[in-house]
Simulated scan of single mutants.
Amino acid sequence: MKQIGNLLLLLIFPTLLFGQIDSTKSKLSFQGDFRFRVEQDWSSRKSDGTYRNDRTRLRYRARFGVEYQYKDWLSFGSRLRTGDPKKQQDPQLTLGDSFKEFGTLPISFEKIYVKFNHKWFSSWLGKNAFPFEKQNELFWSDNVFPEGISLSGSFNLEGNFINALQVNTGHFIVASNGSSLDKDASFQGIQVVTTHLQKRLKLFPSFYYFNNIPNIPDGNETFVMDYAILHMGAKFIIAPEKQITAGFDFYQNVKNYDNNPTISKEISNQKQGMITSLSFGNLKKSGDWKLNFTYSFLEKFAAVDFFAQNDWARWDYSSQGSNDGRLTNFKGLEVMGGYAINQSMNLKLRAFFVNQIVPLGIEKENGNRVRLDFNIKF
């Protein structure tokens, strides 16, 4: 409880200080959210051919953030969340799990940053959200917050072919080894985002380079490896008035692992990914409905599995000393239906049906999962 109190004091102290400095005009903004989840898993086969026990869980997550606009071009921000700090992909807490007999809960910072904005240029330093355009969590989870420097330039062209252009780039440290930067586990990215057809079409080709990334997260690695991933993303608004949207992502890791003795031949060429989606409606105001279908085919090295989402199946590294997920090397379908109670509250029902692409044992793993989320934001 003392640790939680200290964290809250650290978050609130700048609010009190800045409130004294500028009492005539508030430069503070607050935001937060709460989620309650009912989740059911069934018929989840392991690589040895046996099945995991069917599981029902009640889960929740809470987050609270604050941002202070110090100057027109300079702001500071931070956000707290519940969740085990060792599980970067999963801020959810399970009722009665690990914190039994009504013990205290783990709370930690997921964001803390300084942000710059001046005309066409923007940047942030610290720990913040993934700064590259994306339309799902299959390559990078919304709950994983990189640490480093992000740079971005945005330009309104208003041309017949290109309506707007944005360039995103950055350097981020996964794990520092106390030596030169090239020895760190890190990644860099560069992305060009263009909009076309009166902003109905968005294209975002990208390139990500991951350096010295462990094969198993949380310090249990047996070797490190590099990834060089080309990404082509596209989003098209088919019918603006009916809010029908289609999305497409293609990933290609261009690194050659054929001569890597630590990577088996069965998976050394598993380096491509393809994701398609079709969405109807949105959840912006009371009474809105939304329906979304997503098909994913993501081979083993098309993404770094413990930076991607861990929503679709119960696959993790627990047998190797880490609770982080390993959601690549799978194909499957997600069906989502949502209803907006009002502008700040909604319900989302999501169902996942997953099969492994290449077996890592005698059988291919699979999984079935359904979730009902009640979301509140303020």
Score class of each variant (00 low, 15 high):
Val167Pro: 10
Thr94Lys: 13
Ser150Ile: 01
Lys364Leu: 02
Arg37Trp: 07
Trp42Ala: 02
Gly83Glu: 04
Tyr339Leu: 06
Ile173Glu: 06
Val192His: 09
Arg79Ser: 08
Gly83Phe: 04
Phe293Trp: 08
Asn156His: 10
Lys127Cys: 07
Gln252Arg: 15
Val370Pro: 08
Ile112Gln: 06
Ser108Thr: 04
Asp316Asn: 15
Trp73Thr: 02
Lys364Gly: 03
Gln309Trp: 02
Glu241Leu: 14
Gly332Ile: 07
Phe330Trp: 14
Thr82Ala: 10
Ser344Lys: 15
Phe330Glu: 08
Asn212Leu: 07
Ser78Ala: 13
Phe293Asp: 00
Leu11Lys: 11
Asn253Pro: 09
Ser47Glu: 11
Lys183Arg: 15
Thr169Val: 00
Phe250Gly: 04
Leu327Val: 04
Phe99Met: 06
Arg371Tyr: 01
Leu197Glu: 04
Pro14Val: 03
Leu17Gly: 12
Phe139Trp: 12
Ser75Val: 01
Phe36Ile: 06
Ser176Gln: 15
Ser122Thr: 03
Asn310Ala: 10
Phe236His: 11
Asp182Pro: 14
Phe30Cys: 06
His231Ser: 12
Val304His: 08
Arg59Ile: 00
Leu95Pro: 01
Asn366Gly: 08
Lys199Glu: 09
Asp305Gly: 05
Val38Cys: 11
Leu372Ile: 00
Leu201Arg: 10
Glu110Leu: 14
Asp41Gln: 11
Ala234Gly: 10
His196Thr: 01
Trp315His: 12
Ser318Met: 08
Phe236Asp: 00
Gly273Pro: 07
Gly32Met: 12
Leu360Gln: 14
Asp218Ser: 12
Leu80Gln: 03
Tyr70Pro: 04
Asp258Thr: 06
Lys183Trp: 06
Gly159Tyr: 09
Pro359Asn: 13
Asn136Met: 08
Gly103Pro: 13
Gly178Lys: 12
His231Asn: 13
Asp249Pro: 05
Gly281Val: 06
Leu28His: 12
Phe116Thr: 02
Arg63Thr: 05
Gln188Val: 01
Asp72Pro: 08
Gln92Lys: 14
Ser206Leu: 05
Gly83Asn: 10
Asp258Glu: 11
Lys183Cys: 02
Glu39Lys: 15
Leu74Tyr: 06
Asn346Cys: 09
His231Leu: 10
Asn211Ile: 00
Arg45Thr: 00
Arg314Asn: 10
Asp288Glu: 14
Asn282Asp: 14
Lys242Trp: 07
Gly325Pro: 05
Asn160Thr: 04
Leu165His: 08
Asn342Leu: 09
Ser123Thr: 06
Phe223Arg: 11
Ala129Asn: 15
Leu333Tyr: 13
Arg52His: 13
Lys87Thr: 01
Leu17Trp: 13
Ser26Gly: 13
Lys255Val: 00
Ser75Met: 05
Ala246Leu: 05
Asn269Arg: 15
Ser277Lys: 07
Gly103Met: 09
Ser176Asn: 14
Gly332Trp: 11
Ala302Asn: 01
Ile216Leu: 15
Met232Val: 06
Asp249Thr: 03
Leu7Val: 00
Phe280Asp: 00
Ile275Cys: 05
Gly32Cys: 14
Pro146His: 04
Glu67Gln: 15
Asn259Pro: 01
Asn220Trp: 07
Arg63Asn: 04
Thr50Tyr: 08
Phe236Asn: 01
